[in-house]
Simulated assay, not measured.
Amino acid sequence: MSSIDLTAIGAVVFDIDGVATDTARVHAAAWKHVLDGFLRGRGEEPFDIRSDYLRHVDGRARLDGLRAFLASRGLEVPDGSADDEPGQVSVHGLAGAKDAFFLEQVGKYGVAAFPQAVALLHELRRRGCRTAAATASRHGRTLVQGAGLAHLFDLIVDGHDAALMNLPGKPDPALYLEVARRLDLPPERTAIVERALAGIEAAHKGGFGTVIAVEDAADLAEVTVLGRVPRPV
């Protein structure tokens, strides 16, 4: 059982996809929808959620994840540019098609918050702990707002912010370190709640005081909150 000791931790940072919102599976399905056709044309095995998505794509910025996956298969594709049409055979084109399908699915079915995450957020805030959301997704704010969670976070930093600041993606800890900086807390007094392997690695690299690694949101029900954040004198 994991625990967060609020006598030592001043803020808890949540990843969004698959931790706070039920959207990791939508990302995975969108990648499979786009890449299966591309792979079929190359005589390759279909995109596999466990061996391909979780290992190479999950938790990373969209372009970084796609590049990592292509490299794992030894596939060379031109990088292209942001002007490429969605579906064009380039890194930007394939990523654009994935993004379009993801947004279509979110628009059609909405965004659901995990009740375990909502309960933990309420408990942390009741005990005086600040909370933040951090994600490689450029749609982070949209997802948080769509899930009705915006009021439970003091700060949201997403992939759009990271791009504006030219921050490297996970497993580099830059995104999480930027969140800690904005919270005016050192990493050792900041906890990270993560599911993706790249994000867990980033949290450890960044020297964060507590790293709660979960396989899925159900694990959040087992997280124990100890004490409360001391009030300023």
Rank of each mutant, 00 (worst) to 15 (best):
A174Y: 06
V179S: 14
G227N: 00
A163T: 14
D99R: 13
G227A: 00
F69A: 01
Q88D: 10
I192E: 09
D79I: 02
G148Q: 12
H56L: 02
F101C: 08
A136M: 15
A191I: 11
T135R: 04
D36R: 08
F69M: 02
D158I: 09
V111T: 04
E201H: 09
V229T: 00
P171D: 08
A71S: 10
G10K: 12
L121H: 04
V223L: 04
M1H: 14
D219S: 08
T21E: 11
F69W: 06
V225P: 07
L175I: 13
V19T: 13
P230R: 15
A134V: 10
D154S: 04
V193Y: 04
L94A: 00
T23L: 14
R67P: 02
A217H: 06
V118K: 07
G159K: 13
E44N: 07
L70I: 01
D172A: 14
L185D: 09
I192W: 01
V179W: 03
D52L: 06
G93R: 05
Y109W: 12
A180M: 09
E201M: 12
K170D: 07
S81R: 13
G199N: 08
I4K: 05
I9D: 04
G146I: 12
P168C: 06
T23H: 11
Q116M: 07
K205V: 09
G209M: 05
P46G: 01
V77L: 12
F69P: 01
R67G: 08
G93E: 04
V179C: 10
V118H: 00
V89M: 10
L120E: 07
S3V: 12
V211W: 00
D15L: 01
V34L: 01
G80L: 09
D83L: 13
L185N: 07
A82L: 08
V179Q: 11
L120I: 13
A97P: 01
E188Q: 15
G59I: 10
L155G: 02
A217V: 10
H204N: 15
A71K: 13
L149S: 04
F14A: 05
V13Y: 00
G93A: 09
R182Q: 15
A11W: 01
R55C: 02
V26C: 12
L183W: 06
D5C: 03
F47H: 04
A202S: 06
G59W: 15
T190W: 03
L54E: 15
A68I: 05
